[in-house]
Design a protein around this nucleic acid. Structure first.
Length: 480
RNA sequence: GCUCCCGUCGUCUAGGGGUCUAGGACACCGGCCUUUCAAGCCGGCAGCACGGGUUCAAAUCCCGUCGGGAGCGCCA
């Protein structure tokens, strides 16, 4: 059975790179009826935080990457890592290292300055039994280093890149167990993947070198080596590794921006994978059915916000108005436009969704397009500059005044009737209808961009519409 | 510096010796529609990093150059 895993470290939020790795793994497991394991690599005591673990889990669930097994925590498996490390020690395949990290750090810096890579020279590789005993009794701390064999072939067949060559001679005797008793990443991963029967490791290409090191450990332990697939990195617009500088990078931030989980999934899938030369929009089911490592690209992909938003708008277009209405509610509450989720008139909200239509590219857009329908009349604030723009043209104010009068007498308050009034009055005055339309649009919304005016007025209701036109007319007079 | 990976429109990509005058999508620019903005429809701009081979034929295979990226921790 195919067993894959996603193994984030809880030292930050789930960003798009991590999310994409998780997605690819999940997709593979779904497609082949395999197992998808979630493992939290929390051996960095200083940087790991429970809050991050919580957030990562939340974001993974939001993306729809369920079911998964776990989460398993490495800090709950410390005994196991120690057991394997000491076993290696007893067999002479690893050794205690008493070198102080400070000293090594200094040597590393010096080597780097001289333009050379620092490799641990093996100071402690051949310490005598007595000396080891003495130093332990002295209370000296030690780490455990693996004995890296010479000229061992560590090449592997990558499922997306093909053969990748490494020799063990490129590596030094790296630490597998830190002096605080914690395993290092490359060591813990091997033991976990082996114990959890992971047989395919899919991760970012920044791990290629780690893979070689891990293969070294597999070989030393005599364990079966899983298959590997290294997927391309996700870059920022400057072609540098995605970082905080590139704006919202945590998946949760996109959720708060009003991106749908299925759109996020779709977008992430297309970062480094494609189906053919046509299809861009995929449902979750289609992705599960069509995804394969064979079609994963080798090139790093630049994160393109515009495309994310476009994909989101396409998924939004497919949704029923009822569903969109529900989805938008939290954002209305967040913006302070409605008191609570319960206080909203659903039927009316659906009408709002209808008139906003395809303008909605992100859920947050509802605020920009429809806030004026939720606001109180007194919260519609004009500026003299915009007001001037709104009434530009000869006789516009007069026409609006007349329209307002007729509107007051209107019995049937619907978009068709309203439109008729406005168009008739405009042509009576030999004025293009767009003039009063623009003025009234501004009057009821204090904006120049809104959904269709007549529908907006209908939904706003007669009283509020007329109130606002009055208020606007007064404002114009006062600002002459 | 060393090791490894990668180079097709601005971006994501299709293509893997002839069907490529290189296709699609996003973005951008026009036009139509129109009540603003979207949407929709029509049209446009724009790319095989470079240089050598191999071959009747190269975006595709080989070599080199250049460019980009990653790794080189008692971080993961």
């Amino acid at each position: 059975m195919l067993t894959v895993r996603f193994a984030p470290s809880p030292t930050g939020y789930l960003h798009v790179g991590g999310a994409r790795t998780a997605l690819f793994n999940w997709l593979l497991a779904q497609k082949h009826g395999g197992k998808f394991i979630l493992r939290i690599e929390d051996t960095d005591r200083e940087r790991s935080k429970e809050e991050y673990t919580r957030q990562i889990l939340e974001d993974i669930k939001w993306l729809g990457l369920v079911p998964f097994e776990g989460p398993f925590f490495q800090t709950q498996r410390l005994e196991r890592y120690r057991e394997v490390a000491f076993d290696l020690l007893n067999k002479g395949l690893a050794y205690r290292c008493f070198c102080s990290p400070e000293k090594l750090e200094e040597e590393r810096k010096r080597a780097y300055k001289a333009g050379k890579a620092f490799k641990y020279p093996g100071y402690c590789a051949n310490l005598s039994e007595e000396e080891i005993k003495k130093r332990i009794e002295n209370g000296e701390k030690f780490a455990i280093r693996i004995r890296m064999p010479k000229n061992e072939d560590l090449s592997f067949e990558d499922k997306v890149r093909g053969k990748i060559n490494f020799s063990s001679s490129e590596f030094d005797d790296f630490v597998i167990l830190k002096s605080d008793g914690m395993p290092t990443y490359n060591f813990a991963v091997v033991i976990d993947d082996h114990d959890m029967k992971v047989n395919l490791v899919v991760r970012g290409e920044d791990h290629i070198t780690n893979t070689a090191k891990q293969i070294a450990i597999y070989k030393i332990l005599g364990w079966e080596i899983p298959e590997f697939a290294h997927i391309p990195l996700i870059l920022g617009p400057d072609k540098k590794r995605l970082s905080k500088r590139h704006g919202a990078r945590a998946v949760g931030e996109w959720r708060r921006e009003g991106i749908l989980p299925e759109a996020m999934m779709n977008f992430l899938a297309l970062l480094g994978w494609s189906w053919d030369d046509k299809q861009q929009i995929f449902t979750q089911e289609e992705l599960v059915e069509k995804f394969s490592l064979e079609r994963v690209s080798k090139n790093p992909a630049v994160f393109d916000v515009d495309k994310l938003i476009w994909i989101n708008s396409e998924h939004l277009k497919k949704k029923a108005d009822e569903e969109k209405a529900e989805l938008v509610i939290p954002f209305l509450v967040e913006a302070g436009l409605v008191e609570s989720e319960e206080s909203i008139d659903r039927a009316w909200l659906i009408e709002v969704i209808k008139i906003v239509g395809d303008r909605l590219k992100k859920l947050t857009d509802i605020v920009a397009y429809a806030d004026f329908l939720f606001k109180e009349d007194e919260d519609i604030i004009y500026t003299s500059e915009d007001a001037k723009k709104a009434i530009k043209g000869d006789g516009v104010v007069e026409v609006v005044e007349e329209i307002n009068k007729v509107l007051k007498e209107l019995d049937k308050w619907d978009r068709t009737e309203i439109e008729k009034v406005i168009r008739d009055k405009a042509s009576e005055h030999n004025l293009g209808a767009s003039k009063p339309i623009r003025a009234i649009r501004y009057a009821i919304s204090a904006k120049f961009v809104t959904p269709g005016l007549f529908e907006s007025m209908e939904l706003l209701g007669k009283i509020r519409t007329i109130n606002r036109i009055n208020k606007f007319l007064e404002f114009v007079k006062a600002n002459k």
